[in-house]
Amino acid sequence: MTDDTADESDRTDAPRRAVNRRTLLIGGAGLVVGAGITEAATALTSTSSNLGPAVPSPGEDLMTEHGVLKRLLLAYQEASTQLAAGHTPPAAAISDAAQIIADFVEGFHEGLEEAYVFPRVRDQHATLVQTLLIQHDRGRHLTTAISAAAAGDLTKPATRTALGRYLDLFVRMYAPHEAWEDTVIFPALRDATPQRTLNELAERFSELQNQQYGDAALSQMLDRVESVEQQLGISDLATFTPPEVYTS
């Protein structure tokens, strides 16, 4: 099962897919926070692929998806802050964010990790991979709880408290979760995997994403994320910039 042999006939349309992939990565309107991540990912994991530089490596691809998750974590954080301050955040924003997370992050992105990444690094990072798998499960159940709470009556203190708690738990778990994947798991994947297999994984990820979401997958996701951010009032990156700091 780990044979790297590939049918050459299966790769005849690689250039077309490469173009699609590049379009996905550079065409995402609103990719603000994630842009720096992608650049860093490229520097960290770029490959000298014989398919051309336009094809993102598996690590870069997964880190870009982590950028989507990071923006949703900011949305959750903002919603929790509003709850704690006695305000009522727009329930639709929370529900939309949870839906994107359930579908794109927990369904697709984590499925790729579980199918193609974790098996390749499990020997080197057994304990970490187990923790990541447990967190995937906790996350899926938390998302179910967040969706249910967001659909409840947010004027009730118990519902507000529970929703805030679930949001905080999710953010607290996933911020380090993706940080460990970015800094340990994905570099380990690169180290443990022959270049040819990395290229094939890049193609596989691209093809699966196109099949599941269409050619404009990332752009569509970012549009949805931006809508969530707008509802919560955090769509402008500049709002995250602190006031000028003066030193005495």
């Binding site: 187990q130 906790r138 159940h141 709880a145 709470a149 118990a158 519902t159 529970a162 708690r165």
Partner: peptide, 14 residues
């Protein structure tokens, strides 16, 4: 999972 924080399962990872 009801709207009570204490009910959410957050057992330590096995």
């Amino acid at each position: 999972i009801t709207p009570t924080p204490a009910t959410i399962p957050i057992a330590p990872p096995s």
